[in-house]
């Protein structure tokens, strides 16, 4: 309570401020005070290994081919998938049909994610600005992971056509299957609320949206020389995604500085940082795990930058935590 003014004589104000004031004035020592207790706790009440519980809603956008809303704590991200047709004849340098190409999706750029942070989702991201370095960097990481994880199979995105045998063609002239067009998926990711750890939530939103994506039945009409699509939902097909890659991000809070050696400083690895913690942590680690099965060893990506606290030992711990988190997401998203 504030100083007691009831009896008229002003007493010297006490040095105790409410928690929020401490957090605003000296965020670093505030977090440090929480973490250095017997049972390390974070300012948001979680323990360092606790992730926030995720919730997913799919199919809420009716005009897109697929959509999902993911909430992780106070971070909320909406993802919509729009499919458009790209004619093979419009591609200046199309891939050859007889060559089985796993990299076709990457080469033709059939998956186009774009993350939009300038929505007013946090005071740091005012609406209407061009994408800054952070937004471009996140978009690129998502694109890179989408292509490298082979989540989407090229056959789902190809519209094939079997050329009929010509009437006067000999027995050697066989029916040839060519790809007449491709589906290009524009994956728009909007952040409506940001409270740290954008990448994990955005990636989960992309997975959930792709899982719910439905592509109409499309075929090449030889007479009209165009692609036709069927409006019937019964004929539409869902995407066959392979694997379930899940991202888990960690941040490191450390009191080390050039004036204080790492061995004498205290450091904690915090799972799923919120925006308060993100501002105080310079070191970040993202672990992307996929399904472990034949041919797939489990880890798809490790990204660590910003400091030197996480070494081999801490990495092992983080990978274990990422495995638990993978199971948690699998329960929510299914698939895998």
């Amino acid at each position: 309570m504030g100083p007691d003014m009831a009896n008229g004589a002003p007493t010297a104000p006490g040095l105790s401020f409410p928690r929020e004031t401490f957090a605003k004035l000296t965020p670093g020592p505030f977090l440090h005070a929480h973490l250095k207790q017997q049972e390390p706790t974070r300012a948001n009440g979680r323990s360092p290994e606790d992730f926030r519980k995720p919730t997913v809603n799919i199919g809420s956008l009716t005009h897109s081919n697929g959509s999902a809303v993911v909430r992780v704590g106070d971070t909320a991200i909406v993802c919509g998938v729009r499919a458009e047709i790209l004619l093979a004849s419009d591609i200046p340098h199309p891939p050859r049909d007889d060559v089985e190409d796993d990299d076709m999706i990457e080469e033709l750029g059939l998956l186009v994610p774009n993350i939009e942070l300038s929505t007013g989702c946090s005071p740091a991201h005012l609406p209407g600005n061009a994408p800054g370095t952070l937004a471009q960097s996140l978009s690129y990481r998502i694109l890179s992971l989408l292509n490298a994880s082979n989540l989407v199979s090229p056959s789902d995105l190809s519209i094939r056509y079997t050329k009929p045998q010509t009437e006067d063609g000999g027995p050697s002239e066989e029916a040839r299957e060519v790809t007449k067009a491709y589906w290009t998926l524009y994956i728009d990711i909007l952040c409506i609320a940001l409270d740290g750890n954008t990448f994990d939530a955005a990636w989960a939103a992309v997975i959930a949206a792709l899982q719910s994506t439905v592509l109409p039945k499309a075929w090449w009409d030889a007479d009209r020389e165009a692609i036709l699509c069927s409006p019937l939902t019964a004929e539409a097909h869902r995407m066959q995604l392979s694997g379930l890659p899940i991202a888990s991000t960690f941040a490191v809070f450390s009191t080390a500085s050039p004036l204080k050696r790492l061995e004498e400083a205290d450091s904690w690895v915090l799972a799923d940082p919120d925006s308060f913690e993100e501002e105080l942590c310079k070191e970040n680690l993202t672990v992307v795990m996929g399904t472990k099965h034949a041919g797939n060893d489990g880890l798809l990506r490790l990204e660590k930058t910003g400091g030197s606290v996480i070494g081999k030992v801490a990495m092992q711990r983080c990978v274990r935590m990422a495995e638990d988190r993978w199971r948690e997401w699998k329960g929510v998203l299914g698939g895998g």
Partner: peptide, 14 residues
Amino acid sequence: GDLLLNESAGNFNL
């Protein structure tokens, strides 16, 4: 021997 950067991609295990 402090690890400052680690970027790994592909298909691997711990």
